[in-house]
Amino acid sequence: MTTNILEIKNIKRHYPVSSGILSLSKATIKAVNDISLEVRNGETLGLVGESGCGKSTLARLLTGLESPDSGTIFFKGKAFKDWDSSKIGTMMQMVFQDPYSSLNPRQKVGNIISEGMRINKTGTRLEISKRVEELLVQVGMRPEHAKRYPHEFSGGQRQRIAIARAIAMNPDLIICDEPVSALDVSVQAQVLNLLKKIQTEFALSYVFISHDLSVVSHISDRVAVMYLGKLMEISPTEELYHNPLHPYTQILLEAVPIPDPTIQTADVSIPGDMPSPISPPPGCPFHPRCPKAMDICKETPPMRKEIKKDHTVFCHLY
């Protein structure tokens, strides 16, 4: 039986906002709005959606950087609130989107990678130094790079350093928040292959967040599609790409460019703009832009429906 390393149940995260000179008018941004999801041991769960749909907020909730307003997050079968914060910090790490701002420019690479080990006193100074050198080699760097500063490296090399820092404490789960979106295309493939290699060596689970469906298909075992703070569809990767059920997923996949200039493709776009998360539409949040919307979509939120094994959709069409 497959076990889940991470499970979230009905979590919400809303942010109050004020407007006007006296800040009297208050509203709420519904960044994450009632999401339930699980991450299985050893798998890579891809999380995709347009910018502003709540992916990064969900990532911060999953790592404990923020707390949900309601709902529960379980890690290894135990609720977050029952874990010691320092303990869970060693078992779960995050790789951020921007390798230029995620590393402290005033610290040498060796200090950046070893910070967690030094705080948790996992060995002597010599043992930690040797461990840093081993980690650098594992991510494709050289041991002497530990004595340099982040500004001396390229974007791809900095992301390798960030990955070395993430695996330094032997975590069980890594949240990757668009880890290759700021890199050149040629470097993206190298970093993705490194992540897959590290996953095998360390028996890791990943949550891989991206807006690039081509990248997600390369690395993910399952994919969850998110829109305006809610989930639209969850499916094994191959099944999703060959048999997308939700109209939003279908449009996203049709819009993926084909890297062949001899193939003519239709100009695919989603009509209209994404509604504001301050006042999301009632019913299905995608209905104002959905070409297959029905009257029920405008009033009633769709329930979770498992169409076939592991393939779930939130849509009134099914």
Rank of each mutant, 00 (worst) to 15 (best):
L135P: 08
G155A: 03
C176P: 00
Y149L: 01
V139E: 03
L135W: 12
R158D: 05
G123F: 15
R158P: 03
M169V: 12
I113P: 03
I174D: 02
A166Y: 04
I167L: 10
N111A: 11
R165P: 12
G123N: 15
S154I: 07
E134K: 14
G156T: 12
H151W: 13
V109F: 05
P150Y: 00
I167Q: 06
L126S: 14
M117W: 02
G110P: 10
L126T: 15
G155R: 01
A162S: 15
M169R: 13
P171Q: 10
N111F: 12
K147F: 12
L173S: 00
C176I: 01
E127P: 03
E144N: 11
E178L: 07
Q159Y: 04
M117E: 01
L135G: 10
N120G: 00
A166W: 04
L135R: 09
V109P: 01
E152H: 08
E133I: 03
P143H: 06
G156F: 12
E127R: 04
N111Q: 14
S114M: 10
I112L: 09
K130C: 10
T124Y: 13
S114I: 08
A166N: 04
E178S: 04
Q138F: 05
R165I: 15
G123S: 14
T124D: 11
I113T: 09
M141G: 08
R148C: 01
A168T: 09
R165M: 14
R158S: 05
I161T: 09
E115V: 07
P150A: 05
N111I: 04
E127T: 07
